[in-house]
Design a protein around this nucleic acid. Structure first.
Lengths: 193, 193
DNA sequence: CCATTAAACAAACGATTGTTAGGTTATGGA
DNA sequence: TCCATAACCTAACAATCGTTTGTTTAATGG
């Protein structure tokens, strides 16, 4: 047997470093050199782990979706009421994307068209996560006439915009924000009757 | 008297070219060379009109805010009902930011921290426009307990996210989107009592 | 019609970009 | 203990970036 992965492999530190810079500066502004320096590597070393910068972005995206989905689904365990489930999911979602160094922020901040070569991969990953939110909304007892797609997209837009205005410290908590979002949804449901 | 501005001045074409590229590709991905080529100039010529790339971005931002504010205020003329006024404003806002080559898209797409040297200028310009929306929300007969700031920010988030998912053609119209947004606001108001 | 100069062109500058090729180290199975 | 190789370093490459400098064109007030 040959050693597949060694103990001192720093691929994880590399991913973390990339996520940190990508989430705070975007794709183009995050240089390979800075990502390397940020985790104590040299620029060339990155290319042992990933064939190019695009692939590194995809890897971060992938890990981000995995963590987002994991934490949301864990947070939903034991909850039955569809309203409570959506609220809890939104609170978890918001909590993750306002952490400055989070993988999740990368998915929110970096649009798929930032790296044209892998746009379709990024869209696919994004959709995989949004499917969770779609299922949560579908589970709500909404009037049949409701445009669920529009509701979902507006909700995601409102939630994903939080990192732009949210100030760490005295600002509204993820739970508060989720509650206000749910007020909108409930009100929406009432009026759509 | 000396000639201040000549008839064949192409500063306007330059701004238009910059707005087009900035709105569709972002700040870093829009190069001086492409902006120049897009309006039939040479790269160096841009520096006669603006001292650097940052200043060009600020100029586009400025023009974008001016056009957004103008069209929204024109659309509101004659409308008295605060609910109708907000809905009309949102419809106009959405209509402008889904035009692919619009100045308005630049303000939505390019975050102020994209150009660190002029971040405060961009924030100032953005705030100048958002003050209009704030006034429209303040004019609503909402329950006193309403967190107007949060409502405004969630609303802006939902609206500004539209260009990300909106497909030209068969998708929802700006008027439809504005109506759905207003449903949320009205529902929100009811439940906040 | 002339002199001024706004507005552009032409051509390069140094810096930075993503990337690569070849050499070095040290880990872990045998 | 040994050695294949995972994991990284070193040093450079060509391409592209924003920007500058000097020159040319043509519009305009007098």
């Amino acid at each position: 047997m040959k050693p597949a992965v060694r103990a001192n492999n720093r691929n994880n530190a590399l991913l973390e470093s990339a996520a940190e810079l990508l989430s705070s500066r975007g794709y183009q502004a995050s240089t390979i050199r800075e990502i390397a320096k940020n985790c104590g590597m040299l620029p060339g070393s990155i290319y042992y782990h990933y064939p190019n910068k695009d692939a590194l972005l995809v890897a971060v995206y992938e890990e981000g979706v995995r963590r987002l989905a994991d934490r949301v689904e864990t947070a939903l365990e034991g909850l039955e009421d569809p309203w409570q489930r959506l609220e809890r999911a939104l609170a978890t979602h918001v909590a993750m994307i306002i952490e400055p160094t989070a993988y999740a922020s990368v998915i929110i901040r970096i649009l798929p068209d930032a790296a044209p070569e892998v746009t379709s991969d990024l869209i696919r990953l994004r959709d995989r996560y949004e499917a969770i939110l779609r299922a949560l909304i579908e589970a709500l007892p909404l009037p049949p006439a409701t445009d669920q797609r529009l509701l979902r997209l507006l909700l995601i837009g409102a939630a994903n915009h939080v990192p732009v205005w949210h100030r760490a410290g005295g600002d509204a908590s993820p739970e508060q924000i989720a509650r206000e979002l749910m007020r909108m949804v409930r009100g929406y449901a009432q009026l759509a009757k």
